[in-house]
């Protein structure tokens, strides 16, 4: 298993995790070739993604994601399995998962994310092989 891609804007491989009651039910890897923020966001919405965990993301793409009601957890780094486990355990705010330079004014947990305990949802990770 790889690591979370450092830059979402150029990532093409996505790891989709389906969760119910804070338990990972299934996962799959998908390839999305995208030429613009719009096409990536449309593909993510089409796959039913609620939450996106990713590394660095440019402002235009982040804004496009937020407009589309995708909850974004940017500036996350580390091994995908560990990141997913931390997400489910609500411990993704540990320093080892934060990219350097992530401060409160533009940090992942200031984009409206609250971990929704007890609800089923799909999340998506970028995968770095």
């Amino acid at each position: 298993m790889g690591r979370v891609s450092p830059v979402l804007d150029v990532a093409t491989r996505f790891w989709i995790v389906h969760c119910e009651e804070n338990i990972q039910v299934s996962h799959q890897e998908v390839l999305i070739e995208h030429s613009s923020p719009n096409s990536l966001v449309a593909d993510l919405r089409h796959s039913g993604v609620d939450i996106l965990i990713c590394g660095a993301v440019s402002q235009p793409l982040l804004q496009e994601l937020l407009r589309s009601k995708v909850q974004v957890l940017p500036h996350i780094c580390g091994n995908i399995v560990e990141v997913v486990s931390a997400f489910l355990a609500d411990t993704l705010d540990q320093p080892e998962f934060k990219m350097p330079g992530c401060r409160a004014d533009h940090c992942s947990f200031h984009h409206g994310y609250r971990h929704r305990h007890g609800r089923g949802h799909k999340i998506r990770h970028q995968k770095n092989i």
Partner: peptide
């Protein structure tokens, strides 16, 4: 930055 993986710090379009 010191001690962290370079791709997590530098974050270029070609890291991956």
């Amino acid at each position: 930055a010191i001690g962290r993986r370079c791709c997590d710090v530098f974050r270029t379009s070609i890291c991956e």
